[in-house]
Design a protein around this nucleic acid. Structure first.
Lengths: 338, 338
DNA sequence: CTGAAAGCGCTTACAG
DNA sequence: CTGAAAGCGCTTACAG
């Protein structure tokens, strides 16, 4: 029934050894501090025997290190973010870090609140898909030399580390792909957002449309609408843009609602309407016809993010990392003009 | 340039007020401790002015409370878990709790390690999809009266709180639905697992097959195979079970690989083969034909999980909650015998 | 090679 | 109504 949980002081008393020595041994500093092998073994054996677990709360308080990385995403239930989260989690775990996460839903107040809670908790590092309204918090962290990497989007003209996709080029290539396949009236359905990645996707679309001497058809909508509403808006857009022979959706959730809309309208893909999605999704490969998409290199992104963060965590590296990765256009049947 | 971060002691000195009083005021105990309104206002104003933020690490250490809930899922990149996680996160945030999460991948060692890290961090509460090999850790927490709720599956004959689906009945109903639609040779593709939810799904299938006097065709496979391998095994199974007129997949990731396999084999759904999935997925509604699925009440699950956990966190409730929720069979076109 | 002691920043029982 | 002081369980500079 002796289910007491031991403290360092308890061990010290039982073993007649100072807490200092035990602490050194437990923290792998036995050699550095020139603890005798005898003492080390004696301590380790007893620690094992009574199953002593240091109180990490006390340790964190004392050292100021939490071994926790804050991960802020737009929406953990979106497959892009959840896949990335899974990879980041795995890699972080390998290095002894845990993940505290939060979804912003692109709501600045929510993001601000999350940032504040992260900061209050003195997390060791941050991986953040930033929204509007938290630039101050991010700058504050960076200025305090807290390791932090942005992803998916970043702030223009900033001195932050980031790993993002080459959204502009990907969007440009998507339009080029449609043009190469004979489409001429290409619509673009996107989110009304000032976020860098969405701006770049729009800019890439516009540049390509201009480069090929085509006419732009752009449908903007708010991010925080229900799926049914997004679907409805796409239906309306397609109805009054009869001239379109292809649509390019700027995110996977828009594409999914777009496919619902196209189904509702009874249009045949790609005969009546070509379709291309920014961001891949498992549904696109199963869809009949299969849906052409721009795939983000999620593995590489996770790799880079963790690599950069760990470098900053361990060696306090100050070098600026601003990485732009290329996407891959996965050509499927929805973009083959018949 | 005075960017110092204040401590309680700093405030006390500056204001000529004891740290005790400030602490009471900041923790909303001003009334209870009968602090004068004057003092309260003076303190709050100064706290605001210098933007004082209590060190949560110190507070957690002192109180033993972290305001963090550990969420252990099978795989955060699976849409069932990521959707649930999003809902849990939202509700937890409303009550001031953050989520520390981890994916087990159904690997006992990984789960054990996660549990130990959670425990070491003295989290306030746990929401766990248990795997094999961590029953000891879970019992240990429950015996120490740490709030903990299991979900998705539980341990048989246990005294743990849980929220699960009525997997047995759902699987039974799925077979009944196929039988009602004229299917007679119904295969079941599932994971070779001792986990309660998978056992129940299998048992439900078997009971229904027996009840309707049919012949069982069961394909078991390991959980931790790559998608391509799972797809291959399903192709093989379908090839050598030509008599099948329908297949029931026990999880959404199996269904997705099943759809790939069926596509590869060039079979028409539902003419050549009826299809039904345990667990819904956005791809099923877009698929042509649409895929019949058993949908889990994710909203309700998240609600119940948080409700139970908060009750235990706040009022230390000891009442046992073992909740089994019904699923919904969403009848789509893949199960209509033609 | 080892240990006594200070201190991290809070909260709270106790005293007045 | 308010405050002095102990203590949570570690880590580490310092002394020997």
């Amino acid at each position: 029934m002796k289910k007491k949980t031991y403290t360092l002081a308890d061990l010290a008393k039982k073993l007649n050894v100072s807490a200092t020595s035990i602490s050194f041994i437990l923290n792998g500093k036995a050699e550095e501090k020139r603890i005798s092998a005898d003492l080390k073994e004696k301590v380790l054996r007893f620690v094992e025997e009574v199953n002593y677990k240091p109180n990490l709360l006390a340790r964190s308080f004392r050292t100021g290190k939490t071994n926790i990385i804050g991960l802020m995403v737009e929406d953990i239930s979106n497959s892009f973010f959840s896949k990335l989260a899974r990879l980041i989690e795995e890699k972080a775990n390998q290095y002894g870090y845990k993940i505290l996460y939060g979804s912003t839903g692109n709501v600045p107040d929510k993001a601000k609140e999350l940032m504040q809670m992260f900061i209050d908790r003195r997390l060791d590092g941050y991986i953040i898909a930033p929204t509007e309204g938290i630039r101050d918090e991010i700058d504050q962290l960076v200025n305090s030399h807290v390791p932090l990497v942005l992803f998916d989007r970043h702030y223009e003209s900033s001195q932050h580390d980031y790993v993002v996709l080459d959204n502009y080029q990907c969007a440009f290539n998507a339009v080029k792909h449609l043009v190469d396949n004979g489409f001429k009236e290409i619509g673009f359905v996107t989110i009304n957002s000032v976020q860098q990645q969405m701006q770049q996707r729009l800019a890439g679309y516009q540049a390509a449309i201009e480069a090929y001497g085509l006419k732009p058809y752009i449908k903007l909508m708010a991010y925080n609408l229900e799926d049914a509403k997004k679907c409805k808006l796409i239906v309306d857009f397609l109805k009054k843009s009869k001239q379109l022979d292809a649509v390019f959706f700027s995110t996977n959730y828009l594409s999914i609602n777009g496919l619902r809309a196209i189904k509702e309208l009874g249009l045949a893909i790609p005969k009546d309407l070509g379709v291309l999605s920014f961001d891949d999704h498992v549904a696109f490969e199963l869809h009949n016809p299969t849906i052409t998409a721009i795939a983000q290199p999620i593995d590489q992104m996770a790799d880079q993010l963790i690599k950069i963060l760990l470098a900053k965590l361990s060696v306090n590296e100050e070098h600026l990392h601003q990485i732009t990765l290329p996407g891959t256009l996965i050509s499927r049947n929805s973009s083959l003009k018949q």
